[in-house]
Design a protein around this nucleic acid. Structure first.
Lengths: 254, 254
DNA sequence: ATAAACCTTTACGCAACGTGAATGTCAAGA
DNA sequence: TCTTGACATTCACGTTGCGTAAAGGTTTAT
């Protein structure tokens, strides 16, 4: 039995373009070409196509398939195991992605649930997105996943009142940092009050507080340009000032 | 603070090409372009880039990101949920793929374990690949996953002797079908013996046998071109002949 | 002044085809 | 016989998100 492209394509449930492509990349050549230039396939080609489709269904790339089909069964087995490893990696990566997306959705849902009026737009944008984006990785690395997970959980469970409170706290904190910074003395009462406020602000997100962790965080503000940029918006140079004040506040030498 | 491509790229941990590309597709335009044609970015652009990277980390396509960034938070939420759905689909698909690859690996491992000498190359190629490829789907659909899973399990557990036995049985079966077909009478003793052999052959793979299932399988040989082609290799037209003989053998009217 | 380090645009490459465009071939009906 | 419609052919561009030159202008440092 002989087949033209269309026939074979229908038999195999693929497109004619695919067959021409397979011809082009030398993965499946027709048995012969007739006088009009038509591709003619035979039984041998059907068998090969079946094998190709078999590996294709396993997600193997055409390039790999080409070499697989020409190699011994030993190498086929090896190739499959390598492919398997790749798939597992992909899966793990995908699961991480899904978890992150779910977390983000949960956050936005928590927010919209609490306020239909997008009252907390600015708050959320600053707190959640910036926190997850900027702080997420670093905090995860330094203090483990638990820290940021509980952070997210806390945000979800917060009442509107709490949101307002934190909003106010944040404003007060920034104000305090600014005034203290303008005064210039990290050991001043104003500066130490700012540190206290920063601690209170932090306590809203951290499950357990430690001076060391607090100091570490503020030091990180200084070390990472992105953090510095964020805090220096209050006043240029105030990130370092905050760190110095915090050294005194926590008594931790870093 | 102003940034050139290189500066911003280093800050964000991406390539300059990426920034130029984002400019090209209108996803992140520089604040201005200086007299030498250099791209100059500002704080606003940093913030936007952070948002872009945030969504990018979630696996959202750049096209979607562009619309997301211009839309309300409500629509952002919606887009995220849609994206989430897509990811779940992808995951499911990937898991299926992995399961199939694992199954295939298990099969080849079973085979190589049983025979280092690639003694069963032809057998394996015909039995496992063709079975899984051609028969897998249909059998699954008609008789559930259990049927083919137990089939695979059985193959794995088979001893070399059993392989030889089945090989011989297969040859006998084909021989019997051929002779019976040449005689031409589906009710002949030869034809009924072929049916009996086909049943014995089947029993090596099926956990429980039923006349109905057997008849259904053979009818499927007739209905599906690919099956027909396979059996007609013995002799053109013999698939239908086998079906007719099987009607008498099983007494099932289909 | 000259080299190093930066910037620019242009454009091909990647995987696996989809989707035309322009044109040739074949079997069948008026 | 002529035409129509279904098939075939070969280009060749589009898809995604950039990587990677190539060929050239600008800025900075020595």
């Amino acid at each position: 039995m002989e087949y033209t492209v269309k026939k074979l394509a229908e038999l195999a449930g693929i497109s004619t373009r695919t067959l021409r492509y397979y011809d082009e990349i030398d993965i499946l050549k027709p048995a012969r070409i007739n006088s009009s230039g038509y591709r003619i396939y035979g039984e041998t080609q059907i068998d090969k196509l079946q094998q190709i489709m078999f590996y294709r269904e396993l997600g193997v790339g055409l390039d790999s398939i080409k070499t697989i089909l020409c190699s011994s069964s030993f190498n086929k087995h090896d190739a499959l195991r390598e492919h398997h490893g790749k798939l597992l990696d992909k899966k793990q990566q995908l699961e991480l992605l899904i978890a992150n997306v779910e977390k983000t959705i949960a956050m936005t849902e928590g927010r919209t649930y609490m306020s239909d009026k997008e009252k907390f737009e600015g708050f959320k944008k600053k707190m959640i997105e910036e926190n997850e984006l900027k702080y997420g990785k670093e905090v995860r690395e330094k203090y483990g996943n638990g820290t940021i997970d509980s952070f997210n959980q806390k945000i979800k469970n917060m009442s509107e009142e709490q949101y307002d409170l934190i909003q106010k706290l944040t404003d007060d904190l920034n104000e305090a940092i600014k005034s203290a910074y303008e005064e210039g003395d990290p050991s001043s009462q104003l500066a130490q009050k700012a540190c206290e406020l920063h601690k209170m602000w932090l306590l809203n997100y951290w499950d357990q507080y430690s001076k060391e962790a607090h100091m570490g965080l503020v030091q990180m503000y200084v070390d990472d340009e992105r953090f510095t940029a964020y805090y220096d918006k209050i006043a240029p140079g105030c990130t370092v000032f905050l760190r110095n004040a915090m050294r005194i506040f926590t008594g931790v030498e870093e």
